[in-house]
Design a binder for these strands. Structure first.
Lengths: 323, 323
DNA sequence: CTGAAAGCGCTAACAA
DNA sequence: TTGTTAGCGCTTTCAG
């Protein structure tokens, strides 16, 4: 039960019969040092034999910078699609020797700055842009790069546009928007709604008829009444869960999609295809956005000006029966 | 763009006109040191004025132990309920001065041991028990406590039992089980299935009729055929998504729940109440389990023998129309 | 009650 | 090509 004291780089040096500096050079592939292959091997072999792992804190202390990136996940019921994003980002960063860990923002918990300082993150990555004050605070907490900065464009408005365009292309002239009641979602929902409004305007249609709903059939049914009263024939829902609620609300009135009202969601959650009828939705390809984020981090840490993030969630239409 | 060098505890000492040692004592509330209130205030005030934050790596290096706990989240489509768990755990741990960060396990990414070493975690917390080899490796990577250990009992079998009992109480004598096809879920699913089998046996019923399905109506419909052929009248689904698939499969055959087959899920995901018909399911209360996990970590770090985790997910029946 | 000093394990000048 | 040495910022024993 006692902790078997970890081998240090000095132990490795001793085992390999070289100085500790040499060990450091070898293990870090320090460029500009020509170390004979023979020595290299001896060191590597010793390190492996001892199961040596460099002590991260010591390294961080000495270098003045860690290899840790912190992903701040907002307290949103975003669901599973987020984990693909996280995984991708972690993989991309690890190719650059960076380790990604995640912190869930919600609740009355330790503020992000504390977490950042505590783990010694040298990069903090968020979903929505950090305002300048927060970014500043994070820098003071030890982060060298903080993204996205407030200069980046929003990522979510285009999604609303995309939804609305689909409906418009299919001939709908009166568009509704289903807003979720969950307060944490409001900001993002408003942005997407903005996109829908743009698309409507661009097509010469009236602005979308907005109704909000809980994730539950009764309030959704009320929203449906509102749309019917306004002759809405197609509604964009904030996400698939909201869309599912709309479908449930329609059922209460014996209305069916798409005949009475067409509905389109966002996210392509697993239950979307299981809805009744199966839900048309938008899915994302995170690969591109992940790569960009990773590049920004790496560039930033290298002191180069990070490429600005032309945000591309690469929305893709998943056509199913509900439209 | 240049990083405004962080204030060190020496800076604070200078500003407060005391030694750096005193600063350390004050900031850590070091017991057994009686520092005059006046000095204390001076130090605190200086620290606040400089926005001083102790350098975590330095502290870790000196103390030989960090205040970081790492939560290893398996690559499972577990969905949103997990985030409540994470939040709760983070809050509970932070009350003890520990910072929780999360690492998503899946993919071909850096192994957990590396992440553990990289961030200098002194505790690693998993969902399923770590086998002894892994636990050992994590200890070698610097973790002082690793839970759950292989000695803990499984948490998930009782859930299956709970589901089956509900069905049995409602008079069903022939039980089916819906297994998800997702490979990462198999292990957990088998455990829950075990619980269902136990409950059946205890009630003197035949073992459950097992069918597996994707999250999609066609394969679910095939599973339904299987159950019908075996005169199954109630099926326990691994989780709500699987249950939703079963419902969709039944629709394909114009069967309805609960008249033809009753179905019960697990998780109470948001779309469960929106299903057609609304899904009876099991929800969890993580509070207790969270508290226990946190206690185990704290006790373990303090060198005390951690209390063994009598696992209590506190399942609660959410009765809706599908049963 | 407070301070001086010795590290913690590693990196990076600078010597040799 | 390799080794010596001086810190990185903090904790902690041990004197004062």
């Amino acid at each position: 039960m006692t902790r078997p004291k970890r081998p240090t780089s000095t132990d490795v040096a001793r085992a390999a019969g070289v100085s500790q500096t040499t060990v450091s050079f070898v293990l870090n592939n320090r460029p500009g040092q020509s170390i004979p292959e023979e020595t290299r091997q001896r060191v590597l072999e010793a390190a492996r034999r001892l199961d040596y792992r460099p002590h991260a804190s010591a390294r961080t202390l000495a270098r003045g910078r860690s290899d840790i990136a912190l992903l701040a996940v907002p307290d949103l019921p975003i669901g599973a699609s987020i984990s693909r994003f996280v995984e991708g980002l972690a993989a991309a960063l690890s190719e650059h020797g960076l380790t990604l860990v995640t912190h869930l923002a919600g609740g009355h918990r330790r503020p992000l700055t504390d977490v950042c300082a505590e783990i010694g993150a040298s990069a903090v990555i968020g979903f929505e842009a950090f305002d300048d004050d927060t970014a500043q605070a994070l820098r003071r907490a030890g982060a060298d790069v903080v993204i996205p900065s407030s200069r980046e464009r929003s990522a979510t408005a285009p999604i609303g546009q995309f939804q609305a365009q689909h409906l418009i292309e299919r001939g709908h002239r009166r568009i509704g928007y289903a807003l979720p009641r969950h307060p944490n979602l409001h900001r993002m929902a408003e942005e997407r709604l903005g996109g829908v409004a743009e698309a409507c305007a661009a097509a010469g249609l009236a602005p979308p008829v907005v109704r909000s709903t809980d994730l539950e059939a009764t309030t959704a049914a009320e929203a449906v009444v509102g749309w019917v009263a306004e002759s809405v024939t197609g509604v964009c829902a904030f996400n698939d869960e909201t869309a599912t609620a709309v479908l449930a609300g329609m059922r209460e009135h014996s209305l069916t999609a798409p005949a009475d009202i067409a509905v389109i969601g966002v996210d392509d959650i697993p239950t979307a295809r299981l809805a009744n009828p199966p839900l048309t939705t938008i899915s994302f390809d995170f690969d591109e956005v992940v790569r960009r984020r990773a590049d920004m981090v790496v560039a930033g840490l290298a002191g180069r000006e990070p490429p600005s993030a032309a945000v591309l969630f690469n929305p893709r239409l998943v056509q199913r029966a509900s439209t």
